[in-house]
Simulated scan of single mutants.
Amino acid sequence: MSGNEMHVLGLSGGRDSAALAVYMRQHHPDIEIEYFFTDTGKELPEVYEYLGRLEGFLGQRIRKLNPDRDFDFWLKQYNEFLPSAQTRWCTRQLKLRPFEQWVRPLLEEGKIIYSYVAIRGDEEYREGYSSKDENLIIKLPFKEAGIDKAGVLDILEGAGLGLPHYYSWRTRSGCTFCFFQQKIEWVRLMERHPEAFEEAKAYEKNAVDHGSPFTWSQGESLDELSRPERVQQIKEDHEQRLARQKSKSQPNPLRSDSEPLDIDDLYGKAKVCLACHK
């Protein structure tokens, strides 16, 4: 931060935003950047571990923006209705609102804020945080430099960070009960973090009891999804998708098994929240 300008970079605990932080430190060391993470309190433990490692690389603390009201507070405000792809109140209230509360006084003082967002060169431009304030300027360094998914992986490997550990079973960061998860990700959450899965089930049951039209996973409750025969069906479907995708993929001798298949590669690109998943 210098003079009338401020540079900020939001971290989700995910791959792309971490790589952008590394990239900016390596290629633009002259820019003093404030790195921040908006903590919903419902993140995977692997996310916090990865952010700790990233702090070690950056050599500075990542600012934690905590929402002034937690998930339970907002759930009551929305009549116990779960957030969904159609009504993303969780992103709005737990991610964007704390960011707005942080930067608004600075913008009102006349400060120009540059916000760096990790949209890659191989992605269609998707608007992340939008603002009517002309002094909040969105920058897309990966887009400008043409850095794609492979480039992101190279950046993280070169920095000695690698991927967050949860990438072995889940593509995206964000809350443990994110509604953008595929069925297989719910199954893996149940197996790896059963306490988080049970918490999500409790939220869902309470919401349904209050008339919520949404369940966490489209078309079925977590109680239905967690039945042994359904779990087996989901795993078999996932293995079939995996086999089909691998048969179509060109082997990369430079990467071998170091480039895991994203869940979205198997199930189609989902509309995700940039504040949570980049």
Rank of each mutant, 00 (worst) to 15 (best):
S12N: 02
S12Y: 03
G14L: 13
G14K: 14
G14H: 14
R15A: 08
R15S: 04
D16W: 10
S17F: 04
S17K: 08
A18S: 15
A19M: 06
A19K: 03
L20I: 00
L20Q: 03
L20C: 03
L20E: 01
A21E: 03
A21L: 00
A21W: 01
V22S: 08
Y23E: 01
Y23T: 02
Y23S: 04
M24I: 11
M24S: 02
R25P: 04
R25I: 13
R25E: 12
R25H: 14
R25A: 15
Q26L: 10
H27F: 07
H27A: 02
H27T: 09
H28L: 05
H28F: 14
P29C: 14
D30S: 07
D30C: 03
I31H: 07
I31T: 13
Y35T: 05
Y35F: 12
Y35M: 02
F37G: 06
F37V: 06
T38Y: 03
D39F: 05
T40D: 03
T40W: 05
G41T: 00
G41S: 10
G41N: 07
K42Y: 08
K42G: 01
L44T: 03
P45K: 13
P45C: 11
P45H: 05
E46C: 13
V47C: 14
V47S: 15
V47E: 12
Y48E: 08
Y50A: 09
L51K: 05
G52R: 14
G52F: 06
G52L: 06
R53F: 13
R53A: 11
L54Y: 09
L54W: 06
E55Y: 13
E55S: 15
G56M: 09
F57Q: 11
L58W: 11
G59W: 08
G59S: 07
Q60G: 07
Q60T: 05
Q60I: 00
R61S: 09
R61N: 03
R61Y: 04
I62M: 05
I62H: 01
I62S: 01
I62G: 08
R63F: 01
R63S: 01
R63N: 06
N66C: 11
P67N: 01
D68F: 10
D68L: 14
D68V: 10
D68H: 13
R69I: 00
R69W: 04
R69Q: 09
R69E: 05
D70L: 04
D70Y: 03
D72W: 01
F73P: 01
F73H: 08
W74Y: 09
L75A: 07
L75P: 07
K76I: 02
Q77V: 15
Q77L: 12
Y78C: 06
